[in-house]
Computed example of a mutant assay.
Amino acid sequence: MSLPPRNPDELLRARGADTRPDARFEPYHYRREHDGWDLPLDQETLRTEIAIENARSIMTRNSSPDIPFDRSINPYRGCEHGCIYCFARPSHAYLGLSPGLDFETRITAKPNAAQLLEAEIGRRNYAVAPIAFGTNTDPYQPIEAKLAIMRACLEVLSAWNHPMSLVTRGATVLRDLDILGDMAGRRLVTTGVSVTTLDPELARKLEPRAPTPATRLRMIEGLAKAGVPVRVMVAPVIPVLNEHEMERIMAAARDAGARSASMIPIRLPLEVAPLFRDWLLRHHPGKAAHVMSRIQAMRGGRDNDPRFGTRMRGQGQEADLLHQRFRLARKRLGLLREDPVLDCSLFAAPPRAGDQLALF
């Protein structure tokens, strides 16, 4: 898949992608062509746009055999963090938008998420199990500081004593330590903080609008001090670029308060592969071929292997050695493999005004 040329009218500031490849389901494809006129351009900085969706449902179910949850909620579509490697980029194609710049500049928010959540878990036939947040896009991306959709969801879950897991790299999670700490005291929440690199320069290129590595370590520290179980997610591990940091990331996260650790080699599904190749050529042209050859060595000779069981861990000698290194480091650092088991037994509707009080 070849990428279209960059729009010269747009001035990009802290963006991961450089262009807008076509959404794969669209019947028409657009290409910019030079019209022969060399006129001076009036460039405008590309801004993030937030669209509001009045969602009809909020909980997504899945039966994937290599995912440890069966239900999830994503309060936002798209993610302004702009991580170039994000496996969620292809999901923007379902909206008729590009997995490139559109994914990180055209965000959809679902302000009624908390109301839909409460209606779902309040159904008579609802069977409680932990709900996963942050499985596709980050619920604590920048706009959450203003809209507080995730906080409203936390308030519902806390009131119902409903267990949940959370994956984020957004510093706004520290705003909600009051709720998360209280839920942790009832064994209702676990968190995962993604730390890709400790190198701020590499992070700025890979994840241009995500918090810095130092901020993410402070997030781990803040969550841990509030009593919230924290897992450091060394993900994605990218050969040549950040794989040499794996043990140092785990040690720094352990020192900050992380209890457990996980690792995933980089995945490049669908449109992510050409976007990542383009990013490599822009930022690391001398390493691009080496990086891709090492990725393919873990993916059966391809850019990506989507099969259940191998998509999260890779295959072959390269992947086996990486996982062996990770297991040894986890054991040496005293980090756990699994998160604490969440308590589903407390789940109940919160008391309402006028309800008869229980005797026992």
Rank of each mutant, 00 (worst) to 15 (best):
residue 56 R to E: 12
residue 57 S to D: 15
residue 58 I to W: 00
residue 58 I to V: 14
residue 59 M to Y: 08
residue 59 M to R: 13
residue 60 T to W: 09
residue 60 T to K: 14
residue 61 R to V: 09
residue 62 N to F: 04
residue 62 N to I: 13
residue 64 S to N: 13
residue 64 S to L: 13
residue 66 D to F: 13
residue 66 D to A: 10
residue 67 I to Y: 07
residue 67 I to L: 15
residue 68 P to W: 09
residue 68 P to F: 06
residue 70 D to C: 10
residue 70 D to F: 04
residue 71 R to N: 14
residue 71 R to H: 11
residue 73 I to W: 05
residue 73 I to K: 01
residue 74 N to Q: 10
residue 74 N to P: 06
residue 74 N to V: 15
residue 75 P to M: 07
residue 78 G to T: 10
residue 78 G to K: 01
residue 79 C to I: 08
residue 80 E to A: 15
residue 80 E to Q: 12
residue 81 H to I: 08
residue 82 G to H: 01
residue 82 G to N: 02
residue 82 G to E: 03
residue 84 I to C: 03
residue 84 I to K: 04
residue 85 Y to N: 03
residue 86 C to V: 13
residue 86 C to F: 10
residue 86 C to D: 06
residue 86 C to M: 07
residue 87 F to T: 07
residue 87 F to N: 00
residue 87 F to E: 04
residue 87 F to V: 11
residue 88 A to Y: 09
residue 88 A to E: 05
residue 88 A to D: 07
residue 89 R to M: 05
residue 90 P to Q: 08
residue 93 A to W: 02
residue 93 A to K: 00
residue 94 Y to N: 14
residue 94 Y to T: 14
residue 96 G to H: 13
residue 96 G to P: 10
residue 97 L to Q: 08
residue 97 L to I: 04
residue 98 S to M: 06
residue 98 S to Y: 04
residue 99 P to G: 05
residue 100 G to S: 12
residue 100 G to N: 09
residue 100 G to P: 06
residue 100 G to Q: 06
residue 102 D to P: 01
